[in-house]
Design a protein around this nucleic acid. Structure first.
Lengths: 343, 343
DNA sequence: CATGCACGCTCAATCGATTTAGCAACATTG
DNA sequence: CAATGTTGCTAAATCGATTGAGCGTGCATG
């Protein structure tokens, strides 16, 4: 196996390799970074050095390399949580697309904590990230301002900001379509359609507001008055959604608009064993393959992660992108069959 | 707002700050990295410099800092996928615990691709990661060998290797307990208990083998003969599980051991609308809150992520850890009620 | 008044890779 | 044979932060 041939235990540098090869550090450097042909190094030397590098288990010191090159190729992303399929898909697709573009993705999870979001952004800037993608941040503008001062581009994803271009879903349209579906299906299954419940999210959160707007619009279209006390926005966590519902009497059949799969967890925990269980129809913003199988679930609005990231990387590559740009991409509505299957 | 006061658009360095403050780069450096008291810099100077740094939007260049310090504080992790709650929880908890220890976590997702796993490891080594956590890798030993040659510690997580300490679940015990549960519940609900099905995973994968061993043991204990043609190990993806099941006749009531929530997706897709739907009981290795609500699901074996990571960071901190160490932590068996609720 | 020492700093080397400028040896051309 | 070009390399500066060594001033002590 590879190993440093009996000498020190430190990682070999180009100076070590140069000494072994009887050549110069600059030659070794160019051989190992692929510029050796341009620098007219003979292939005989190149092969010798590459063989020695492999033997010694050489790996370039990117700290030194980047310091000198003044180009890091790092693209950072902050993500709130990995506890749902949406952000998981975003992180995974982001890494894949970044790599395909010869960028080094560094994703970090900030637990929906504004301070941690900012600290993580600062860390990525110190890391010389060239671009920072700010996903679902509480205060994207604060980060954008800091990054702008440091000369780092930022792009907002999922939640918009005013100081950097934003790529997000058409939350209004998605919620409107989903609400229409819940209304239709509640009507089909129960005859009457009482105003729906809206559960999850935060009242000052842009996406929640947009979804609520879609929710209202669909009610208006259907000629339904919605009752404000059925709008519960206690935050996103399962516990908060559960707590918001607990103790409430669901005497009638009803429909529920669940704002995020995370809140959905709390809603279904509440539903479980509840007497009202089969008098409920619900729809959920965001997609989860298992949540799709719940018999009460009439549909889910899936955010189009590949489209969002394609658009995001267009901005990254084009080196333009105006702070006022707000790109909204349609959601994919997934109606579900009453048997818990897909339609 | 912060911004470079009209001068160049490049990020300010300690040299720029020193010039503005009328002091030296070394003073600025020590002021900004907190060693200034030790170096007897007056607080008057310190305050002045810190004010200027804030005004200029200064952020340290970690590339330069790390190069000089020869300490990166980076702890890397490679993770196969973010498409399930288990790896999501691992990544999230890992980042949280690393930060709490003043380490800089860099997590990267390798899509279950052996080449990408190795390339990502190489990249993290070049990044001067001090420790690399190799999660669920196809060939952890290859990575461990490479890292050992480069002087980087590795620790295997979830899947064991022989060249670095490993922290994983007691897959045998967890699968045995889960199988027992499926057998019991299948018996209760259907009277007879035909040999169970085992679906998902790869036959050469350590964890699949261990889980199969637990599956066999529980059969033996119960005096059941298991039929080898009911053991399907087509890989982990939903599509593969689905394809393995498609076209099979499930004429009898039966129980299914599903090896991972990812395979579970394929299994439930197959189940959906299948005539055999209510003659099936299943249990799943790994936890998912929505999968727990499927009425056919009698229980899930949740891997104890906090315990695994606590143990992992003990190894990280203790600076010891033998390549032959294999730490197996018990799973948490979560029996589920027939109504789809938790027991 | 010389000595010692605390204070508040600065100098310069250093980390490892990159890159511009340039040198020596040899070949080719007029 | 001189001028020119080509080949194959090396020297040295550089990126930005860190840090051991050291310098000058002021004050106190013997």
């Amino acid at each position: 196996m590879a190993g440093n041939g009996g000498n020190s235990s430190r990682r070999p540098t180009i100076y070590d390799l140069a000494q072994i090869a009887g050549s110069s550090p600059s030659a070794v450097s160019s051989i190992l970074n692929g510029t050796w042909k341009k620098r007219r190094i003979s292939s005989r030397t190149a092969e010798k050095v590459m063989k020695i590098a492999a033997e010694q288990g050489y790996a370039v010191n990117l700290q030194a390399s980047m310091l000198r090159r003044e180009r890091s190729h790092i693209i950072g992303m902050i993500v709130p949580k990995y506890d749902n399929r949406y952000f998981g898909a975003i992180a995974e697709k982001f890494e894949e697309m970044a790599r395909a573009r010869d960028l080094f993705p560094v994703v970090t999870c900030t637990q929906r904590d504004p301070e941690l979001e900012f600290e993580a952004a600062r860390e990525l800037v110190s890391y010389q990230a060239e671009t920072l993608v700010v996903t679902g941040a509480t205060d994207p503008d604060r980060i954008a301002e800091f990054c702008a001062a440091a000369g780092v581009r930022t792009i907002n994803l999922d939640l918009p900001g005013s100081k950097a271009p934003s790529v997000l879903s058409d939350n209004f349209g998605g919620a409107r379509d989903l609400t229409r579906l819940i209304i239709t299906r509640t009507g089909q299954d129960f005859g009457a359609v009482p105003p729906l419940w809206f559960i999850g999210g935060r009242s000052h959160d842009h996406n929640t507001m947009e979804r609520l707007r879609g929710f209202r619009t669909a009610h208006q279209e259907a000629g339904l008055t919605l009752s404000e006390d059925r709008i519960l926005m206690p935050g996103y966590s399962p516990d908060k959604a559960f707590a918001a519902l607990e103790g409430r009497e669901f005497t009638q059949s009803c429909g529920i608009f669940v704002n995020s799969t995370i809140s959905m967890e709390g809603v279904v925990r509440w539903l479980t064993g509840n007497v009202a269980m089969d008098r409920v129809r619900l729809g959920c913003f965001d997609w989860d393959p298992f949540a799709a199988l719940l018999p009460q679930n009439v549909g889910m609005a899936e955010q189009d992660v590949p489209a969002m990231l394609t658009r995001l990387f267009q901005i990254v590559s084009s080196a333009e992108g105006n702070p006022s740009d707000r790109i909204e991409l349609p959601c994919i509505l997934r109606p579900l069959s009453p048997q818990g299957g897909f339609i």
